[in-house]
Design a protein around this nucleic acid. Structure first.
Ligand SMILES: [Mg+2]
Length: 226
DNA sequence: GCGACAG
DNA sequence: ATCTTGTCGC
């Protein structure tokens, strides 16, 4: 996959925030241009105390959730984990994985927030904007925002609000489990993001794209090889 | 200033 | 994110 926008990653936290504010102007919440047939899921893993990240991308079909391509790479990082600045830690490694990806996905699913973010620009939005590719954030917990109730029944949703705007949805993907946080990353509507997430969810809490990406980066890490 | 805080 | 055993349910 080819990146469309490049910028420095070797920046300070303050500079990172400025970049987010600038790039957030490019985020679009619009309907998909084409019916998604192929989606990608991305995730990152690492050993505690190490600065070596294992970044992976899994590409699957929407129709039968069959894997058609997977890539895992190793990449050093120096940027720490700072709530609100996750993309500056994980995206450079994911960039290396995307560079080796042959398949062109219709939508990218990211383990983290889209616009449900302090500056409305989480890692899912960041990746979507840089690649000019529709993206969705599927997080395991909330970064910012409030909700009126917790969805308990499968496929039930609850709106997530931040600063007077609905920035995402809590989606119950599995009864008895905490809901996932779905938010628009880029060039998709929240309704489309939620519906697509439901299509991509099997019997697990985490939708397949991100769940499979999590599995491959962890197996690569535990084998100590790619 | 205090507390919260994706992965 | 990662560490880990026990326990519950299919
Ligand atoms: Mg992750």
């Amino acid at each position: 996959m080819e990146i469309k926008i490049k910028h420095d990653w070797n920046v300070s936290p303050d500079e990172a925030k400025k970049i987010q504010l600038e790039l957030s102007k490019l985020v679009k919440e619009v309907k998909l241009e084409k019916e998604p047939e192929i989606v990608a899921g991305v995730d990152v893993s690492y050993n505690i105390g190490s600065n070596l990240l294992y970044a992976g991308v899994v590409v699957i079909t929407v129709k039968d959730l069959e894997i058609i391509e997977k890539v895992v790479v190793e990449k050093e990082v120096n940027f720490p984990y700072i709530p609100g600045l996750l993309s500056f830690r994980e995206t450079p490694a994911l960039y290396e994985a995307f560079s080796r990806l042959k398949t062109e996905p219709d939508v990218i699913f990211v383990d983290g927030q889209g616009i449900a973010h302090p500056r409305f620009f989480g890692i899912a939005s960041h990746i979507g904007v840089l690649y000019d590719k529709p993206s969705v954030g599927v997080a395991k917990s909330i970064l910012v925002g409030t909700y009126p109730y917790l969805p308990k029944k499968r496929w039930e949703t609850a709106p997530l609000f931040f600063r007077g705007k609905q920035v995402g949805c809590l989606l119950c993907t599995q009864e008895g489990a905490e809901p996932v946080v779905v938010s628009v990353g880029y060039k998709i509507t929240l309704d489309e993001a939620v519906e697509l997430t439901k299509k991509l969810t099997r019997g697990f809490r985490i939708p397949e794209p991100t769940r499979l990406a999590h599995i491959i980066v962890n197996s690569a890490r535990k084998k100590g090889r790619i």
